[in-house]
Design a protein around this nucleic acid. Structure first.
Lengths: 334, 334
DNA sequence: TTGTATGCGTTATCAG
DNA sequence: CTGATAACGCATACAA
């Protein structure tokens, strides 16, 4: 590989100058002519800066670690896409961390101490609270996705409240009046916000919501069965439910079939978050689509600013309203 | 962060010695006593080797690039898990490349030239042939997953032939006699092998397989519709099909419903590869499970050997037979 | 058995 | 406007 000295030799100038020209150092105003010569030589030799040398010298790796709890989750895939996109644009590369292992602080700070990454994007698990996330982040440059950190800035969130509201409104509009919410754990900020949105929609429509109509189990497939069980055991079970997560909603469909509950005949279902899989369940799942790819981009940009010394506030992606993807899991009622 | 000099100072020895002791250099036989002292000092100071410095000095990054065409694919998620697992075990970290962009050779060699990775794991797309993969790999240390490279060693594959055979055998055993194969493109080695396995099972059972009973469209969801169309338009359409990929099979189920074809009533379906999503289609999809996680591990190990200068042959994971996951998409017949 | 010194490729500081 | 040179932290050849 061509090094700086090779380019310098080829252009007949010094290494220092090449470095400055190639980095577009604003403090150095080289002659247009030498600039050209250097650039040309670099191109001709196919010069590529050595990452290790640069990292060693500048103490910046231009690498960010991405920590997600579960690669298998289609939602995180979309998130990753946004992360990758923005990273490429800003000149970072992405280091993927096995999340289960990485979530403990030791691992995080190790990667940082090794000088492998400049900072982290952190998507917590269902069990993570604002406290635990802050603890995990420690003093590292971290941006938390879909949650917040206790006593610490640096997070990007979707408009979960709007998502909860839009989902409920869709059901109400289709004539449903007894509506349940199969939610994530109460410890999760997203779950609380979705419930708030859900409640506000119900309130605006003059509809009651009994405590039994809301479950707080979790966002994953196996959480669906106990949640559905609990909700349908009410004296007046709902004719429709909002499910806090597509994956959990797939669990709901499967469990409903198992217990002989027809969807959408006896129970309509709408899920928060969209994924390609939702089109292939039976019935195909109606969802509220949130811009997860954009969330990923914003997260990278936020971390970038932070690394550049311009921290900024926690961010909320509420510029575009959540979109309802209408498929077949919601029936009209009365 | 503590550096080598800090540890040296704390232990009262020289940097060189610390380096050698900590790296377990076999050529240097330090006193047990000094060894202890060094180790203790390192532990106490929480010494971690600086990755950039080490990479610069030794021209090894202990990082491998993983290139997959689609993060969204549940199959690759399982593969990634295996990759991550083995990487951690062997002391590598994984750099995730956005695949669509990374598949061209320019990007690959750039990452390598930058000194960001030591080598690559490459999972091609449906469009990639053994020639194109070899071209993409160029001269870089590469291990290709699920395919081969033309005129070049370095690949790990599942036993696709066995998978095709097992799938067909399962159908035959359930009494089916007219059986189709919805396969990936003929340009793909995996597709050809699966077809070979399929054919051998049919032959062994004394069953005919007309050319029209096999399609060679692709492994993805949108490929399912034209393939199903073609297969069902035969004079004597099959009562069962093997589908080359779970994702395509999900497309088949959805398309079958759209055209009013009952599964498994009129058509039984079994897919090659398993994913959690297969349990949540309707009907739940029977599959042939292949050890994708182990494939990921093997790929890392193969690349590791290659990087250590011990290339080795192309590998085939045929030590354990493909497992049929029985769900509800296959009906007994006669 | 242990210490010293050099260089990996860059960036940045200081002269010229 | 440009060139020389000193680090960055580590591994290793060579001395002691």
């Amino acid at each position: 590989m061509a090094r700086l000295v090779d380019v310098a030799a080829a252009a007949g100038v010094s290494v220092g100058l090449v470095s400055r020209v190639l980095n577009g150092d604003p403090a150095t105003r080289a002659t247009e002519e030498t600039r050209q010569r250097v650039q040309r030589a670099a191109d001709r030799l196919g010069y590529r800066p050595n990452h290790a040398a640069r990292a060693l010298r500048s103490a910046r790796t231009y690498t960010i670690g991405l920590v997600v709890p579960d690669l298998t989750n289609a939602l995180f895939a979309e998130l990753m896409r946004g992360v990758e996109e923005a990273s490429a644009r800003l000149g970072y590369t992405v280091l993927l961390g096995r999340s289960e292992a990485l979530t403990d602080q030791a691992r995080i700070s190790r990667l940082l101490d090794d000088g492998r990454v400049d900072g982290f994007l952190l998507q917590g698990r269902d069990a993570d609270t604002t406290e635990s996330l802050a603890a995990v982040a420690g003093t590292a440059p971290v941006v938390v996705i879909n949650s917040r950190m206790r006593h610490r800035r640096g997070s990007v969130m979707l408009d979960d409240q709007a998502a909860g509201r839009v989902a409920a409104e869709f059901l109400i509009q289709r004539g449903h009046r007894r509506i349940g919410l199969i939610n994530g754990p109460r410890s999760l900020l997203t779950a609380r916000l979705r419930a708030a949105g859900f409640r506000s929609a119900m309130r605006d429509a003059g509809l009651p919501v009994s405590p039994k109509a809301i479950t707080w189990v979790g966002y994953t497939v196996p959480d669906a069965a106990p949640a559905l069980e609990s909700i349908m055991s009410a004296a007046h079970p709902p004719s429709a439910v909002v499910v806090g997560n597509v994956n959990a909603a797939m669990g709901v469909l499967t469990e409903a079939r198992r217990i002989g509950l027809s969807v959408p005949g006896e129970l309509s279902v709408i899920a928060i978050h969209d994924a390609w899989t939702a089109a292939h369940t039976w019935p195909p799942l109606s969802t509220v689509k949130l811009p997860l790819d954009r969330l990923g981009e914003q997260a990278v940009e936020a971390l970038h600013r932070r690394l550049e010394g311009r921290p900024g506030e926690d961010q909320l992606l509420d510029d575009v309203a959540p979109e309802v993807i209408v498929r077949e899991s919601v029936a009209d009622r009365g």
